[in-house]
Design a protein around this nucleic acid. Sequence first.
DNA 1: ATCAAATGATTCAATATCAAATTATGCACC
DNA 2: GGTGCATAATTTGATATTGAATCATTTGAT
Lengths: 143, 143
Amino acid sequence: MATSQQALAAYVKLVRAADSITACAHAHLSEHSLTMSQFGVLEALLHKGPMCQKALAGKLLKSGGNITTVVDNLEKRALVRRERGQDDRRYSTVHLTEAGRALIEAVFPVHAEGIAALFTVLDDAELARLGELCRKLGRACSA
Amino acid sequence: MATSQQALAAYVKLVRAADSITACAHAHLSEHSLTMSQFGVLEALLHKGPMCQKALAGKLLKSGGNITTVVDNLEKRALVRRERGQDDRRYSTVHLTEAGRALIEAVFPVHAEGIAALFTVLDDAELARLGELCRKLGRACSA
DNA sequence: ATCAAATGATTCAATATCAAATTATGCACC
DNA sequence: GGTGCATAATTTGATATTGAATCATTTGAT
């Protein structure tokens, strides 16, 4: 049975690893003046298509108020545009603009490459093992 | 050899697990109107003793400007106090006040218990393996 | 048909966060 | 012993983030 000390130590390692990788993998974003959140929104729109803000909030695990802010800032730079639902006017669907699509299509591959490069330190079995451990921990939280 | 897809998927799992656990483990902080950063500062001071802001920044992996803000907010609530170095007046050492010590001594055990409870889903071997995988990833970032 | 509850979005106030510029201080070198 | 570089902290301006309150709109119950 693990001690509370060991659990805490493992937790710290987990958070530090996630932080380090994230910082490392997103370093290139500053070249395009994109924040992580902005990147997250653009990426979701690219891979999942136009989406209302509620859906974006769910996908990115952020609050609704936050999404409003981030989409505001992206809209100022004309990387996305909002479109009020015709059927249900409460919804505001967020679309990539041409410029937004061009940007995220250019930036995303660099991001993916960067992550992949970092993960080459793990072999297939380790990768699978990591996924399994993370899944267990995630389930423990929901329970 | 893992594909870029697999690496991305593993990365997402890792970040989600870290996020979920953190959110879960820090939920009780709102009862004391403490943010995660404030908790981090108090905990560092409790376990490592009084510390200058530069050291706090290093320990919490945050910018110096950020620490100034967080310590400001803790000082407003009289949970910490600053003390200018007599020898070198550039340093400002942050100390727990009586109230601050009492608070963090009450809150920390709950935090540790919470983390430990979540990690009971992993046995000793899994815990060790998780630490190992995180360490490898962390090193990959520094390199 | 009407009013109430539900829902998506926005606003607001507070805190966090960073990067860059600034301030204050100490130290080394000449 | 003064000048310039290094360093700790703070400030500033921008964005992120949350939670609560508010607004607009839809839907459901009567």
